[in-house]
Design a protein around this nucleic acid. Structure first.
Length: 276
DNA sequence: AGATCACTCCGGCAGC
DNA sequence: TGCTGCCGGAGTGATC
């Protein structure tokens, strides 16, 4: 499941399409009506054709393609990724390498650049992702629903990044488990299940600890750890060997068996010995 | 009325 | 080997 570093990496690759024009779009006809609604429903399909891509950015876990008259707002959810037909992509998710398949292509954009035509493809096996065309005011509205970003990266759209003090204030306002706060996109944009678990492991705080029980030092530490694990993922080019608790069997500090359980519908991993 | 919750999309895959 | 059940971002509508 792509989180902030994965999305940033995809956005970096997508830069090559800045300056191209969307000539045509084909949406996978095999999808149910409900699933197809997530990809340029209604007028959005026609609104998108003819638009020039003026920039590609990341905001939280969203990809923002700015265009001549508006923007495409895309979310990869669990299984989404982008590539072009002439250069299929193998993307390493934490679950293992995902080899680009022709079978999970949901949307094909025909792009024109310098008189040549290219096929930009959005793959999404599980159809949980989305692509929406929005006008500038809708874009601003949608993005305003996200909290400040968790990490300043090269391709961040309209950089507005949280800091430890902000995160402490957010924690103070809620009795919810700290992991829920970390993953709440409306409070802090970009952190998902993997890096939330890792950040809490590094700071030795239980994912279930009520957020308002964290001291300022705790909150600063958790926020800093989240930034470090995501920044490391970026520089290591998403080499998941650096993960220490997510889907692990044993704690690499104390050798206790790693616990796993449900926290608000998401499986979470933690060391019951180290994390209090 | 704001916060919270259950439910929804779906294929992949673990576990019988 | 073939089935069943579980998993999950974010949006939606229901409920407290």
């Amino acid at each position: 499941m792509p989180e902030l570093p994965e999305v940033e990496t995809m956005v970096h690759r997508l830069q090559e399409w800045v300056g191209s024009r969307i000539d045509d779009i084909v949406i996978d006809p095999r999808m149910s009506l409900k699933a197809a609604k997530k990809y340029l429903p209604g007028d959005e399909y026609n609104d998108t054709i003819g638009q020039a891509i003026t920039g590609v950015y990341r905001r939280g876990k969203f990809i923002v393609f700015t265009t001549s008259s508006g923007a495409l707002l895309a979310h990869n959810a669990m299984s989404g990724y982008w590539d072009s037909a002439d250069r299929p992509w193998t993307f390493d998710y934490v679950e293992g390498a995902r080899v680009s398949s022709d079978n999970d292509v949901r949307v094909i954009f025909t792009l024109e650049r310098g008189g040549e035509l290219y096929k930009l493809r959005f793959h999404d096996a599980r159809m949980f992702g989305s692509i929406r065309y929005v006008d500038p005011s809708q874009l601003a509205e949608k993005l305003s629903e996200l909290g400040p970003d968790a990490l300043h990266t090269k391709h961040l759209y309209e950089p507005r990044v949280a800091d430890g003090s902000y995160f402490y204030d957010v924690c103070q306002k809620s009795k919810k488990p700290i992991k829920e706060i970390l993953m709440d996109q409306g409070k802090l944009a970009g952190v998902g299940n993997i890096y939330a678990a890792e950040a809490l492991f590094h700071t030795e705080i239980s994912p279930f600890k009520p957020a308002n029980e964290l001291t300022r030092l705790d909150a600063n530490g958790v926020f800093a750890a989240a930034q470090v694990v995501m920044a490391n993922a970026l520089v290591r080019k998403l080499d998941y060997a650096g993960l220490r608790v997510y889907r692990k069997k044993r704690c690499d500090k104390c050798d206790t068996e790693i616990s796993s359980g449900d926290l608000k519908g998401r499986t979470t991993w933690w060391c019951s010995q180290c994390q209090k």
